[in-house]
Amino acid sequence: MSAKFLKETKEGTILLVYVQPNAKRNEIEGVDEWRGRLKVKIKAPPVGGKANKELVKFLSKVLGAEVELVRGETSREKDLFVRLDVKDIKERLGF
């Protein structure tokens, strides 16, 4: 499986995510090869930034590192900054 959803930077990694809000539970569904993004389901509704907050909290817990939303505040396609290298992220996500 390719890691098109990870872009390495000097300080860490940009994680490209496609979010599906209003899901039954928070989970990583896999990779959307067409979009080149990691597909993540989030329980919270996309209202008042609730889904964004829950996404950041969920991925911080899964990755065991600080996650920050850098692009896509109102879009389903989001770019998140993680202070880990690509190898660590792939390992923690199980890829």
Rank of each mutant, 00 (worst) to 15 (best):
G30W: 04
K39L: 15
A65C: 09
G48D: 04
D88A: 12
K43N: 09
S75W: 00
Q20D: 13
D32T: 02
S75P: 03
D88Q: 11
V40Q: 03
K57V: 08
R71Q: 13
I42V: 14
E73R: 14
Q20R: 13
Q20L: 12
E66G: 04
W34R: 15
L69Q: 05
A23M: 07
D79M: 05
V40T: 02
G72Y: 00
R37W: 09
E54I: 09
E66P: 06
P21D: 11
P21A: 12
G30P: 02
V70N: 01
E33R: 11
V40A: 01
I28G: 07
A51W: 06
V70D: 03
V47T: 14
E73K: 14
L59K: 08
A23L: 06
K41T: 09
K24G: 10
V47S: 12
E66F: 00
G49S: 03
V82E: 01
K57E: 15
V31D: 05
F58W: 10
K39H: 14
K50A: 15
P46G: 09
P45I: 06
K57F: 11
V62P: 04
D79L: 05
N52P: 12
E73T: 11
V19Y: 00
D79A: 11
A23H: 11
K53L: 12
K43I: 13
D85C: 02
L69D: 02
K39C: 06
K57Q: 13
G48P: 06
V70Y: 04
V56W: 04
R37T: 04
K61N: 14
E68M: 09
L55R: 02
K41P: 04
R35N: 10
K39W: 14
L63Q: 04
F58E: 08
R83Q: 10
G49H: 05
G49P: 05
K87H: 09
L63F: 01
K78L: 00
R25L: 13
R71Y: 09
V70T: 08
L63I: 05
K87C: 00
K24T: 10
K78E: 01
Q20H: 11
R25Q: 14
E54C: 07
G64R: 00
K57M: 12
V40Y: 03
D85E: 13
L80C: 01
T74K: 13
L63E: 02
P21N: 10
V40P: 01
G30V: 04
